[in-house]
């Protein structure tokens, strides 16, 4: 448990950095995460000027371009409030890679370091800062959790995700084989090496389905785009009208489970 959670110091205000993927492709997940935070009694501020953390260029070997985009984000969070990011890999970028990215720019490096300390991945914030206990109002349901690699290895998000799901009284969390293995997304990797990436997502979807879980949840929309995209493609190939592996961001799942008269 973090110092704040122990001492019961709950921040009254937080910033929300949605990430470009959530803003454009999974807006519902962003809205659900914000709603959940607000229901926990926190004022959520969404800086209008936000765009992207810069990770796509950074991991593709274009650090100069990443730096330009990252520099824009550095200025968005003037107050000393936590910055909540609903994606483990983008949170990891801002927390761990911004300081390196600006290593040769002392002023920005200092800003990046100050920001880094305030970055929280969404589930990490719920568990380790708020000590949030979900009250499960849904029926019996089995889900499987996928954690993105950088979220797992840089941020320990698999633990907080598991904890939150474990706290839901009527939810069983299934265990897939090769749980810690990458889904094969990797940003531009999926485009540059489609054969290998395709084999990886194929195996990942098989493992997830083999658990018999009703749905997959994840705290990373990049992985969801890949996993759900392949599962839907397979459904099309095999002529299924209903998705064989539905999935969503963990924020959406948690919100629905803790709302009155909730379904699954």
């Amino acid at each position: 448990m973090s110092e704040q959670a122990k001492t019961g110091q709950r921040p009254a205000d937080v910033y929300f950095f949605a990430t470009c993927v959530v803003d454009q492709f999974f807006p519902g997940a962003g809205l659900d995460a914000i709603t959940l935070l607000e229901r926990a009694g926190i004022r959520v501020h969404f800086p209008e000027e936000q765009t992207c953390c810069g990770q796509p260029a950074y991991t593709s070997g274009f650090p100069d371009e990443a730096r330009k985009v990252a520099a824009q984000q550095l200025t968005l969070f003037p107050n000393d409030w936590p910055v909540i990011v609903p994606s483990g890999s983008c949170a990891g970028m801002m927390k761990h890679h911004y300081p390196t990215l600006f290593a040769n720019d002392p002023a920005r490096k200092a800003q990046a370091e100050a920001l880094s300390a305030r970055i929280h991945e969404f589930t990490d914030f719920l568990v380790n800062v708020l000590g949030w206990q979900p009250e499960d109002k849904g029926g019996e349901c089995t889900v499987v959790l996928h954690t993105s690699c950088s979220a797992r290895r840089e941020m320990g998000v698999h633990l907080t995700g598991r904890k939150l799901l474990g706290d839901l009284a009527h939810v069983t969390v299934a265990q897939q084989d090769h749980e810690s293995e990458c889904c094969g997304f990797g940003g531009t990797f999926s485009i540059k090496q489609p054969e290998i990436s395709g084999a990886m997502v194929e195996d990942k979807v098989k493992s997830l389905k083999a658990t018999g879980a009703e749905r997959v949840v994840s705290a990373d929309c990049g992985c969801l785009m890949n996993i759900l995209g392949h599962a839907a493609w397979k459904d099309r190939q095999e002529g299924r009208a209903q998705p064989s592996l539905p999935g969503e961001h963990i924020a959406s799942f948690l919100l629905r489970r803790t709302e009155e008269r909730s379904g699954k």
Binding site: L31, I34, F46, I191, K192
Partner: peptide
């Protein structure tokens, strides 16, 4: 969508962005 759609359905932006949803709300 090239290599992406060899084993995945195409990517499509949502009809409303998060910022639009927040404004409407």
């Amino acid at each position: 969508q090239g290599p992406w759609t060899t084993v995945r359905v195409p990517l499509k932006p949502a009809p409303k962005r998060l910022r639009d949803m927040l404004k409407e709300r």
